[in-house]
Amino acid sequence: MTSVPQVAQVAADAAWLRLSLKSTAPVTGYVDGGWWPHSRDLGAEASALARAVTLRLGPVREIAYALAAWNPAPRHVGLDTTTEGRRVRLVGFASQDPSVVLVTGTSGRTLGLLVVPPETTDPAGHDAMDRAARAGNAESPSALLAAAGVRPDPRVPAPRRARP
């Protein structure tokens, strides 16, 4: 049973959080939705994201991210006292696509989310999130961002390509 404080916290997060998910229909494409954080401080952003996707994944175990795309992050973030002190592990990888975070629940289910850079203008940011959450969308993260007019941050290296 979900407690009233948990419901209130999720509602507060929803008003602040910029997140759009595909429906729970059969999964297609590279990503399951789009997330537009307010900053490159994953330690500050991760708790609200983890609480918001709990309805889809169950309790969140970890968030995997590209090291080059974020400011240095702690290894864990706490959710809050209403979740019995649960913590989410933040796992950074040098080889991960900087335009994606992978959110994994304790059930083992994972959501891949397009990360819209925080500096993006409102029209382009909303367009990128909408494209990422569109049913049947199978575009790559870089194609989604480009189609929305989002330019890559020159400070963040492009994802590595597989060698032929």
Rank of each mutant, 00 (worst) to 15 (best):
Y30E: 11
A15K: 15
H38W: 10
S39C: 02
L79V: 04
P74M: 10
W70G: 00
N71F: 08
N71G: 08
A68W: 10
R51E: 04
L55Q: 12
L21N: 01
A52D: 09
H38F: 03
W35V: 02
S23G: 13
W35Y: 12
G92C: 08
V77I: 12
A68Y: 08
N71K: 15
R87M: 06
R86Q: 14
D80N: 14
L67E: 14
G34K: 13
T54D: 15
Y65M: 08
A50Q: 11
G34H: 11
R87S: 04
L19C: 05
T83V: 06
H38Y: 04
V53P: 01
D41G: 01
W70N: 01
L17D: 05
P26N: 14
E84K: 01
W16K: 07
R75M: 09
R86A: 14
V53L: 03
G85D: 08
R75Y: 05
W16C: 00
A12P: 00
W70T: 01
A69E: 04
A68S: 15
G92K: 10
R87N: 02
D13H: 10
V53I: 02
T28I: 02
L49Y: 10
P72L: 07
E45Y: 02
A64H: 14
K22C: 03
L49T: 07
W36A: 11
P37Q: 09
G43K: 13
A66R: 00
A68D: 15
T54P: 02
I63Y: 09
S23L: 10
L19K: 06
P59C: 03
S20Y: 02
I63V: 14
A69L: 03
L55C: 04
L17T: 04
R87H: 05
V60Y: 09
A14F: 03
E45C: 01
W35S: 01
S47R: 07
A15Y: 07
L55N: 12
L19V: 03
R51S: 02
P74K: 12
G58V: 12
V88Q: 05
A73H: 06
R51W: 02
R40N: 09
V31H: 14
A46G: 12
A15T: 10
R89D: 07
K22F: 02
G58F: 09
R89A: 13
T82E: 15
V31Y: 13
A73S: 15
P72H: 07
A15F: 06
R51Q: 04
A50F: 08
E62F: 01
P59Q: 14
L21D: 02
G43H: 11
